[in-house]
């Protein structure tokens, strides 16, 4: 078996012309994955900062006084649902159905907006109670970590609207498919980060 694989040249992996055919966008997914990994490092720094400073309340409010876990559970549900609906958008995209893809993207966007609204309501509520980012090191690191995640979701939604306009104008062309796959990775990645947020910030903060 091994000898046929070497002699027959059946594997096109090292074929130069094939490489050229793949040049257009062929490395985009790997490049975008590397970006996500660097983004992951940003979040790791923010998690480390929260881990170190999360217990410094400066005689201010503690997580137990501030967090409403019911609200966080609803928020987590929104993000999880948006993940699966984006998955459905990708599946319909694979089948080349423009209308269904657009519809699933719109549903995903609505879940994303619901997540953001709930988070902003939570922030506004906390700030109204005097739990501002300036209050204590715990609150500074909390707002930085959760706010950075929220900012990512915001830009994900902006990106989603942009791609919906693109798909409406040009259809599911190769470039748009590639962009939608990048956004898919971005969106699912944000859900992975949120697992860390609800576990380390909200649940473990409440346990403290």
């Amino acid at each position: 078996m091994a000898s046929t694989a070497i002699t027959a040249g059946a594997e096109p992996v090292f074929h130069l012309e094939e490489e050229h055919a793949h040049a257009e966008g062929g490395s985009t997914m790997l490049g975008f994955w590397l970006y996500l990994m660097s983004d992951c490092l940003i979040f790791a720094m923010l998690f480390a900062a929260f881990g170190v400073l999360g217990g410094n309340y400066a005689a201010g409010p503690a997580p137990k006084d501030l967090f409403d876990l019911g609200l966080v559970a609803v928020n987590t549900t929104m993000l999880l649902l948006s993940s699966i609906t984006y998955g459905f958008a990708m599946l319909t995209m694979d089948k080349g159905r423009v209308g269904a893809t657009q519809a699933w993207l719109a549903v995903t966007m609505l879940f994303g907006l619901a997540f953001l609204s709930i988070e902003l309501y939570e922030f506004a509520h906390m700030i109204h109670e005097g739990a501002t980012p300036q209050r204590s090191a715990f609150l500074s690191s909390f707002f930085t970590l959760v706010g950075t995640h929220g900012l990512h979701v915001t830009f994900g939604i902006v990106w989603m609207v942009t791609l919906m306009v693109q798909v409406a104008r040009y259809g599911l062309i190769e470039a748009n498919r590639r962009r939608l796959m990048c956004l898919s990775m971005f969106w699912h990645f944000l859900d992975v980060v949120w697992i860390g947020v609800f576990t380390f910030v909200y649940l473990m903060g409440t346990l403290r």
Partner: peptide, 15 residues
Amino acid sequence: DHTGHDHAHGGAAHG
């Protein structure tokens, strides 16, 4: 289902 070019992604983004 797709031809040629799509396989560049190596199944990374399909489920």
